[in-house]
Simulated assay, not measured.
Amino acid sequence: MADVTMEPMFEVLKSVQARLAQVDGKIDELTQATQALRTSQIGIRQEITSVFQEISGVHATLVRHEGRLDRIEKRLELSEVPHT
């Protein structure tokens, strides 16, 4: 019987190892891209929160000014009486 060698099997295994190394590299790239997206998303959330806080501050100022104007109108008797 002819001698059976492991050379073909080793060649296949080398090929599989090379492909696995490529897959590992792609997974690493995807992991880095995912992390970059998460970091970007966190930044966007912080910006949105900042905008909401700023709008809230503007709203509070408007409410305060509205109250002051109402008091001024009452003091000066400028408030309009609804017509019936």
Rank of each mutant, 00 (worst) to 15 (best):
M1T: 08
A2Q: 02
A2E: 13
A2N: 08
A2T: 08
V4T: 14
V4H: 13
V4G: 11
T5D: 02
T5H: 07
P8Y: 02
V12D: 12
L13Y: 15
K14Y: 03
K14F: 08
S15N: 07
S15I: 01
Q17I: 03
A18Q: 10
A18M: 04
R19N: 09
R19V: 11
R19P: 11
R19M: 14
L20S: 10
L20Q: 14
Q22A: 05
V23F: 13
G25S: 13
K26G: 04
K26N: 08
I27W: 04
I27Y: 10
D28G: 11
D28P: 07
E29D: 15
E29K: 15
Q32T: 03
Q32I: 08
Q32D: 09
A33V: 13
A33Q: 07
A33M: 14
T34D: 13
L37M: 04
T39W: 14
S40V: 08
S40Q: 14
Q41S: 06
Q41A: 12
G43H: 15
Q46F: 07
E47D: 07
E47M: 05
I48Q: 09
I48D: 01
T49I: 13
S50Y: 06
F52E: 09
F52V: 01
Q53K: 01
I55P: 00
I55D: 01
S56L: 00
S56H: 00
H59V: 00
H59C: 01
A60D: 06
A60N: 09
L62P: 08
V63R: 14
R64E: 03
H65K: 10
H65G: 01
E66D: 08
E66Q: 10
E66A: 08
G67T: 05
G67P: 07
R68N: 12
R68G: 02
R68M: 07
R68C: 00
L69M: 02
D70T: 02
R71S: 14
E73F: 12
K74N: 11
K74T: 05
R75C: 03
E77K: 11
E77C: 00
L78V: 11
P82V: 10
P82L: 03
P82K: 01
P82T: 04
